[in-house]
């Protein structure tokens, strides 16, 4: 941003202060992750965990070997990846179609459809009735419980619809006069021109799917569909339980060269790494989404 006010000693001093402050702010975000990375690679059999701060002490990958030697990690990772792929694709295609239908001005069910969804933004059955309903319709303890309830979303509908409604309707009408079916118009015309907004929603959905854990706890608790997040949560709970035991040295001896802290650190890093690697490159897209959403508001 260009500056129009007069530079004084005061403003220069503030600039320095601001740069330092923002540096500290970044440090407060990166350091916890960095510390975990150091713990996960440290040789915890010779150095106490509390001594590890900015650099790993010693080097070993035992924590990672231990985590990856667990057969379950492969399965839970696969479930997480499948959630992201199917959940995101499903939500995009379905909510996109819904959004498109609500923008067709001559469609007489348009307002009704829109309102029926908007209502769900205010009223929901709540946790327990939803839980009981999912049991009764057979979603309980299935993989589908991650995908089906999220297929349509009122909020994403609003964002996508506001994007589509800014498109010239002549585009769709031309295809319609050519005799194209609505689904064909959706896939051939609407989807290609709405890539920016779909990309933004894809980022939100994928991150949501990757990060959610509570739905597993309540809707799929039998362990068959555990995700990486739930796996990490189990590790956390185990460590908490261990630290509750008074004679902790006895409990820790089970691990010999590993401490629970290093296992936790390694698992945390494994769960976080995919997101950390991907999100900086998706900035363009999620920023678009917020701007469109803000315009709508």
């Amino acid at each position: 941003m260009r500056r129009y006010y007069k530079e004084t000693h005061g403003t220069k001093a503030f600039d320095v202060f601001n740069v330092v402050l923002m540096f500290l702010f970044m440090l407060s975000i990166i350091f916890p992750f960095w510390n975990q990375l150091c713990v996960s690679f440290s040789d915890v059999s010779t150095y106490p965990v509390s001594n590890i701060t900015v650099l790993p002490l010693g080097f070993n990958t035992e924590a990672y070997q231990k985590v990856f030697s667990d057969q379950r990690i492969l399965r839970v990772s696969l479930v997480s990846v499948m959630r992201v792929i199917f959940g995101t694709t499903g939500t995009l295609l379905c909510t996109g179609l819904l959004a498109y239908i609500t923008t067709i001005e001559w469609f007489s069910g348009r307002k009704f459809l829109r309102r029926a969804f908007l209502l769900t933004m205010y009223f929901s059955a709540g946790l327990i009735p939803t839980y009981l309903a999912f049991i009764s319709i057979g979603l309980y303890n299935t993989f589908c419980v991650y995908i089906i309830p999220g297929l349509f979303s009122a909020y994403y509908m609003l964002i996508i619809a506001s994007y589509i409604s800014n498109m010239p309707t002549a585009l769709f009408e031309a295809a319609r006069i050519d005799g194209a079916a609505e689904l064909k118009i959706y896939f051939r015309v609407v989807l290609p021109i709405s890539i920016p907004v779909f990309a933004a929603i894809a980022v939100y959905c994928a991150v949501d799917q990757w990060n959610s854990w509570f739905d597993t706890t309540i809707y799929a608790p039998n362990g068959q569909w555990d995700t990486l997040q739930i796996y990490l949560r189990r590790v956390l709970l185990e460590i908490e339980a261990l630290s509750m035991i008074e004679d902790s040295s006895k409990a820790l001896s089970k691990f010999k060269t590993l401490t629970p802290q290093s296992i936790r650190a390694a698992t945390t890093i494994i769960v976080t790494l995919p997101i950390v690697c991907v999100y900086p490159f998706l900035q363009k897209y999620f920023l678009t989404g917020i701007t469109i959403g803000a315009v709508k508001e």
Binding site: Q36, S212, Q229, T268
Partner: peptide, 10 residues
């Protein structure tokens, strides 16, 4: 972009 599980672990 990280889950609350990860945040809690940190």
């Amino acid at each position: 972009f990280i889950s609350w599980v990860v945040a809690a672990s940190l």
